[in-house]
Design a protein around this nucleic acid. Structure first.
Lengths: 341, 341
DNA sequence: GAAAGTGCCGAAAAGGCTTTCTGCGAACCG
DNA sequence: CGGTTCGCAGAAAGCCTTTTCGGCACTTTC
């Protein structure tokens, strides 16, 4: 005697099985489960029950094949271990609403060949769209215009202005950092930042200088470029204190640099924030919250970046493409290193 | 006059188009492109050329539907912003060889409901297997035994011993840390660690105590549990130095804690490593390399964890399931905080 | 009481691909 | 020279689902 109901999820239950158990055709079963309005309530109930009994779960592959939409997007990153991809991924997942869309994640590791390969693989899996996340803010080569699905570039913009890119407004971030320092009464502000080959360091410095000019101030010394490390922060701060002991604030190109700067200040007997204010960029909380005092920093809103990228991609998939570069603003997160208490 | 060749990748080129252009049937085209041995070399060449001309890329959906394999795995994480998922993901991507397999990434954010949901979604997309990554080392609930595809648990083991789990050997990590400290001549070793509700802190402490016993030593004071933060490290170290000024090494439960401990030591006028050696766990390089001196730490080999998990999943997909908990060993990365240098 | 409408259900096609099976001409064997 | 392989190409079935369309049994309308 064969069991009426095959073992729970043993092997791939199909709509056919459901239909047979409910005593209807597959067509009716499909309509019943999808809420189509051409099936009697009683029949629908029978089908639904059969489906539950078999724990039927429709084969999305078949469905996608028919609908010519997979409900799937590819996220192509180059910075998996880095600071940017993950929050962006989170934001994107958020915006997609895990209900309807799944994310294919690939890491090209900065290699163009590998990238091509991944794009090819994603396309052959018929993703509905692509988000490309860079590892730096500098423009990157476009994937091309003939790609059969929409593409949105996040963090690093595409070199092709016809593409749509969502980026962070680093110039604005620099401005708002200086604005904050000035608003806390600082006027002798220095700037120690990271690798000069990064667009981010240049742009943040540019914004900072512009804001200083707006306030009728000028930078103490020159912009100090170096690397994105704590040790550079320490070294640069020591030098700076020797040359310009009068400074009352140091704006740092990243939270890591800021940590180094704070270390150096302490060793030079300067107190933060009363004597010297310090702030960083990125709002990387493992750094900002471990600092003494906790570190004021400019948050780049990466999650929002991810959400916006996802929304734009959706819009493009639905036939409303955009192009150009969209810069999102940032926000200053105030902590103890700029205001006492 | 219509163009002979439709615009490059304009809209979804199918095998049919290729076949027509090559003047053969779809069956033959399929065989030609897949290297089946039932097609003349000359015919094959014609088909291949047609495919290239149209930049044909086979629809994996259709192929999967037929083959009942998608070449797709789901990675279900609970710790996307955390320290563990990303390297594991990298290792997994590595092992899969991006050629053949794509990874669906989902973050359940520690919510069981959301997790069920994601599993359901992944299964309906017919992934070939699942890797579940936990956010802590403590055992987690199983997804169940009747899941139609193989599952491998990584980092956090499943509560069900019939499942296969790949974890880090935290006890062994604790042992090897002490072994290293002893080998550099330390004998008055204290231990400051993190949140006591974490299995990781308990197991590392257990291993450390066992190794001390093996060396005929005992811990200086008690194990100090607290939180995984720099500030806890600072506070605990200050207390400890007051009570046990004779200590010559502090083993810290994480790199963050170690950073706090090193700060406190410096402020108490103790030098590292000559006076007191310090080491951490996790080998999180943004912390270890920013420290002064750089921090010796136990690397958990997360990438290898990911690779092994992926390999085991493959084996299971290919019909060689395993079960139980497989603990991978760790390795001490020696830097300046334990050996002068 | 016939014509038109309604409500439900099933047959069939479609989507793109692989695979089996059939068929056909050529080469081979006896 | 008839019959058997063999090599190669095509027709068709199948994977699983959705959707269109046709059909059947009623009910409603004049």
């Amino acid at each position: 005697m064969k069991p009426e109901v095959p073992s729970p999820v043993s092997r791939k239950v199909t709509l056919n099985d459901v239909a047979r158990l409910a005593g209807v055709s597959v067509a009716t079963a499909s309509k019943a489960l999808n809420g189509r309005k051409q099936v009697r309530a009683e029949t629908r109930a029978r089908v639904v029950e059969a489906a539950e009994q078999l724990s039927f779960s429709p084969n999305e592959l078949a469905r996608s094949l028919l609908a010519d939409r997979t409900g799937t997007v590819g996220l192509l990153t180059n910075d998996l271990e880095g600071r940017f991809s993950i929050p962006i991924l989170m934001g994107a997942e958020d915006a997609f609403g895990a209900d309807s869309v799944a994310v294919f994640l690939c890491d090209a590791r900065g290699d163009a060949i590998r990238e091509k390969h991944h794009v090819q693989a994603l396309l052959s899996r018929r993703v509905d769209g692509l988000i490309v996340v860079g590892s730096r803010t500098d423009p990157r080569p476009s994937l091309g215009r003939e790609l059969s699905v929409p593409v949105v570039y996040a963090y690093a913009p595409s070199e092709d202005p016809e593409d749509l890119s969502i980026v962070v407004d680093n110039v604005g971030a620099g401005r708002s950092a200086v604005d904050h320092l000035v608003s806390t009464g600082r006027s002798r502000i220095a700037h120690i930042t990271g690798d000069p080959t990064y667009g981010a360091s240049q742009e943040r410095a540019e914004g900072a200088l512009a804001a200083l000019a707006d306030h009728g101030l000028s930078l103490v010394g020159e912009v100090r470029f170096g690397s994105w490390t704590e040790s550079w922060g320490r070294a640069a701060a020591s030098m700076l204190l020797g040359q310009h002991p009068e400074l009352d604030a140091i704006l740092c190109g990243s939270d890591q640099v800021a940590r180094g700067v704070m270390d150096a200040l302490r060793e030079h007997g300067r107190t933060v924030p009363d004597d010297v204010a310090v702030m960083g960029f990125d709002n990387w909380e493992i750094f900002t919250n471990g600092a003494r005092p906790t570190l004021t920093s400019v948050d780049m809103n990466f999650e929002r970046l991810g959400r916006v990228a996802a929304q734009r991609l959706f819009a493009a998939i639905d036939g409303e493409p955009r192009s150009g570069v969209e810069a999102l603003d940032t926000r200053v997160v105030i902590r103890g290193s700029t205001v006492p208490g």
